[in-house]
Design a protein around this nucleic acid. Structure first.
Lengths: 225, 225
DNA sequence: TGCTTAAACCTGTTAGACAGGTCATAGCCA
DNA sequence: TGGCTATGACCTGTCTAACAGGTTTAAGCA
C-alpha cells in the first residue's frame, strides 16, 4: 500500500469545500493560491489535486478565470457520497448484475485457452486468500476482472474498472466491508465462484450467466441482509 | 473546447513510449527529468501528465524508485488502441446493450416528474440538433445520460461516463463518425429516441428496455453496416 | 449613463532546490 | 573467492519564486 501523499489530502479537502459550501455546477472554486494557503501546502500540490479532480470529471480549469465545478455531487459516487449513505453503494450491484452476467456469458463462448488458464489462476489465488482469512477483496475483484477480460471486449473491462475502482476508493476511505466471516460463508463464497468458473470452462453461456447472477445476488445479501 | 495544454502532449508522448518500447506491466518508465528533457518541457508538466496517467490507472509512481506501468495496453481502450482498430470500439455497443437497456427499464419504474422533464428536454435538444444537421453527438449522449440518471442509481451514470468518455476521446482524436446522414436516417434516429422516451413516460419498463435495445441495435448497424 | 481601458487576479509553465526513499555496486571482511 | 555492508547515485515528493498570457472587474473618461 503506497503512502498517502499530500495531494490526497488536498483532493479530499477540495471535495469537502464543494460539499460544505454547497457549490453548484458552474460555480468557481477558490483560487489555487488560496487553496494552498488554506491547506498549508504549496501551490504545486493543489495543482496536482486539481488535475486529478479534473481527470475525474469533477472540476474544470479555465485559464485566467479559475477552476469550476463540472459535475454535480450527486453524479459522483466516490468523492461526494457521505459514508452514511453507504447502502447507496450497493446500487453498484444493480449494474454488476447485468454487466457481469453478460460478461460471463460471453466469456463462456469466446474464451481462449490462455484466458481460461488466467481465470483458473485467479480462482486459485482467491481460494488461497479466503482460506487464510485475509481480506481477499483484491483477489475477488481480480477474478471478476479476468472473466471480463475473457470476453475479448475491452469495453467490459473499462466499465468494470470504473465501477469497481469507485467501490475500492470507498473501502479505502475507512469503511471496512471485510468484517470477519464465519467459515461456512467462506466456503459458500468459494463455491459460488467455482460454479462460475466451471460454466466458463464448460463453455456453457447460460450456465455462466446464471451462476454469476446467483453469486452477485448472494453477495449483495451478504452485504445488506 | 478548451485549448490543448502541454501536459496533453506529454500524456500522449508517454503513452507512445509505452507502446513503442513495448513496456510490459511492472516495467519502469524513464525518469521525470528524462521525460521532461525528451519532450522539451519542464518537470512539472511531466509530473502533471504522470498524475493523470496514474489517475487513469495506467502508471504507478513509487517514491525513490520511479514510475511503473500498471495496466497492460490491451486493457485500455482509449489511450492505446490504434485508430485502425476502431471497429473494436463498436464493442462498446455490446456493453451498452445490456447496461442501457437495464437503465431504461429502471428509469421507467423509478423516474420522478423532474427527471422526466429533464429527459424530455434532452430529447428536444437532440431533435433540434439533428434537424439542423449538426453533429449532435453531444446531445445524443446527454439524452442517454439523463436516462441513466433517472434510475436514481449513480452507478449507472458512472459506468456510462466511463464508456462514453472513451468513445468521445476517440472521436476527438480525429475519427469523424459524424459523416453526413440522409434525412430519412435522421428521422429514424429521432423516432427511435422518441420511442424510448415514450415508454419511460408511460412507465412501461419492458417497453423502455426493448426500445433501447432496438435503438442500440440499429445504431450499431448504422456505424458498421 | 455608457463605453473604454487599465489594474488586479488567475491559471499555465518554468527553473532550481532540498528532503527522503530506493537500488546497485564498490569495497571490506571472513 | 564469496557474502555482506555501506556508500553514493538516482528518483519521486514537495517547496519557493517568478513570468507569460488570459479573464474579470472596476475606475475613469466621454
Amino acid at each position: 500500500m503506497t503512502q498517502a501523499r499530500l495531494s490526497d489530502h488536498a483532493y479530499a479537502g477540495i471535495v469537502e469545500i464543494i460539499k460544505a459550501e454547497g457549490l453548484e455546477v458552474g460555480e468557481r472554486l477558490p483560487s489555487e493560491s488560496r487553496l494552498a494557503e488554506m491547506f498549508g501546502v504549496s501551490r504545486a500540490i493543489v495543482r496536482e489535486a486539481l488535475v486529478r479532480l479534473a481527470s475525474d470529471g469533477i472540476t474544470e480549469a479555465r485559464r485566467g478565470a479559475g477552476s469550476f465545478v463540472k459535475s454535480r455531487p450527486s453524479e459522483r459516487l466516490t468523492a461526494f457520497m457521505p459514508l452514511s449513505e453507504l447502502p447507496t453503494t450497493l446500487g453498484s450491484y444493480e449494474v454488476r448484475f447485468v454487466l457481469e452476467a453478460e460478461a460471463a456469458r460471453l466469456a463462456a463462448t469466446r474464451r481462449t485457452g490462455h484466458e481460461m488458464a488466467h481465470i483458473e489462476e485467479g480462482l486459485a489465488l482467491l481460494s488461497q486468500a479466503l482460506l487464510s482469512s485475509e481480506p481477499a477483496h483484491a483477489e475477488d475483484m481480480e477474478l471478476h476482472r479476468r472473466i471480463a477480460e475473457a470476453t475479448g471486449n475491452p469495453a467490459f473491462v473499462i466499465t468494470f474498472d470504473a465501477l469497481y475502482g469507485d467501490v475500492e476508493k470507498i473501502m479505502r476511505a475507512g469503511v471496512d466491508i471485510s468484517r470477519s466471516r464465519p467459515p461456512e460463508v467462506i466456503a459458500t463464497m468459494l463455491r459460488e465462484h467455482e460454479l462460475i468458473v466451471d460454466a466458463i470452462r464448460a463453455q456453457d453461456p447460460e450456465g455462466a450467466a446464471l451462476a454469476m447472477r446467483w453469486h452477485l445476488w448472494e453477495g449483495r445479501r451478504r452485504l445488506m441482509p
